[in-house]
Amino acid sequence: MLLWLALLALIAIGFRRFLVGYPAPPVGVTALAAREYETARAAAEVIYPKGGPIDASGDTAHVAMHSDRFVGAQTRSNRILMALLFIAVEHATLVFPARGPRGWRRFSSLSPDQQLAYLQGWQQSELAPRRLVFMSLRAILTMGYFADAEVLGALGLRPREILSPVLEVDLLWPAVGQHPETIRFTRADVTGPGTSTPLGPSGSVHRDYR
């Protein structure tokens, strides 16, 4: 009986720790569960806080939203690995507690200072697999941060507008997923090679990044 009670208590605690209390993710999130979204959001905000030479933060650069798109574009097995990655970061406080009060709480519930120190612990760990886990998390978030036009703009890295020349091959196939009937070019549209004028900082910025 006692054993059953202990087991039930454990399940309840586990349920509370792993599943309960996460805010609903914003509309449009399709690949990440609420808890994964929150881990990504919290980690992005710690890794990329507001201010400094690039003002945008993880939140304002919509990093967690991008992570959702990135995870959504992955194969099933990669998605499983990523789900494990989020769980590892969120709950490894049980193994590597953050410094300060109640450092064993899940990562997204720690104070910002604790979160920073906790992630630094992963980044600088002498355990290579731990560093690797952190590197994977940071890769997902960094790619999201650098998808943001404001971040790219602050570093002078926004892609430039390029008018792609129309080649003979453009008569052979349509955009991915489309039927050849949708090919919008005819032989008369073929321009041959385009200009070879070098691109530079003064070139106009790509429309999606203005």
Binding site: Y48, L116, M143, L155, L157
Partner: peptide, 25 residues
């Protein structure tokens, strides 16, 4: 490479990391 790909390896976290990112130009 696309900046998000190589920036993964820059050191630091938080404002320290941002300082390093600001060197990219």
């Amino acid at each position: 490479a696309p900046p998000g790909v190589f920036a993964v390896r820059l050191p630091g976290l938080g404002l320290e990391l941002k300082k390093n990112l600001a060197m990219i130009p």
